[in-house]
Amino acid sequence: MAKHVYCRHFTEMEVPFFDVDAMQIAWHGHYVKYLEVARCDFLAAVGYDYEEMGRQGYMWPIVQMNLKYVRPARFGQKIRVETAVVEIESSLKINYLITDAATGEKLTKASTTQAAVSLATGEMQFQTPQSWLNAVKTHPTFREAE
């Protein structure tokens, strides 16, 4: 059974020269940066970027990350990163699909999980803050779990 997707967001970017090796293939470590760019784009879209998280009294470190490389991204290639938010109440879990922007060919699948941590106490929160729940619900594609 597929996980419920609360909302989807799409970000496009081009693989820059400084991300590739001598074979003009994106180095595997740069995919983490592509996920971060897409995640920041999504968070900005709901008005809950990292600065706002801090203002609300929380930091949101990555506590888990998984990547599966299917095909390499290459220098100059335009890629599309789909973020699918699949958990919002106990953590922020996002599934990602990186594809070629022109053809839709799958390049990479990934996921990240972030947990809210109180800035005041340093304690991990077992439920996400209400400020986060209010923000994510503003995304135009948001759907409640059934």
Rank of each mutant, 00 (worst) to 15 (best):
Y58H: 12
E51A: 07
D21V: 08
A2F: 05
H9P: 01
Y69C: 06
M53D: 05
T121G: 01
I79C: 03
Y48P: 13
K109I: 08
F42Q: 04
R74N: 13
Y6D: 02
S90C: 04
W60D: 00
V63D: 07
F75Y: 14
F18Y: 15
G104N: 05
M1P: 15
F18K: 02
E36L: 12
M1N: 11
K78G: 06
A73D: 02
I25S: 03
R8Q: 14
V32R: 10
S118L: 05
A115G: 10
Y58N: 04
P140A: 00
L35S: 09
F17E: 05
Q24A: 14
Q77S: 10
G122N: 01
D49T: 04
I79V: 15
F10I: 12
K78L: 09
L133M: 12
E36D: 14
I62K: 09
E123N: 11
H30L: 13
T121M: 08
Q125F: 00
D21N: 14
R39Y: 03
N66A: 12
H28A: 07
E87Y: 00
P140E: 00
G104E: 08
T113G: 10
W27Y: 14
C40W: 09
K109N: 02
T11M: 11
M23G: 11
Q130K: 09
S91G: 13
D100M: 04
L107S: 02
Q125H: 04
T138F: 03
S90M: 05
G122Y: 09
N134E: 15
V136N: 08
L92Y: 10
T128C: 07
Q127Y: 00
N95W: 01
A120D: 13
E87D: 06
M124T: 12
F18P: 08
H28Y: 15
P129Q: 00
H30F: 12
W27T: 10
A26C: 14
F142H: 02
T113F: 00
E51C: 00
A73C: 13
R80V: 00
V20Q: 06
A145H: 10
I88A: 03
E36M: 07
G29R: 08
F142K: 01
L119K: 05
S111Y: 14
Y34Q: 01
A38K: 05
A116H: 04
K3F: 06
L67H: 04
E36V: 10
D49R: 09
H139I: 03
V32C: 08
A73M: 15
I79Y: 13
H28E: 05
A73R: 06
M65G: 00
E144S: 14
V15Q: 02
L97A: 13
T128K: 12
V136H: 02
P140M: 00
N134S: 13
H139L: 04
G76K: 09
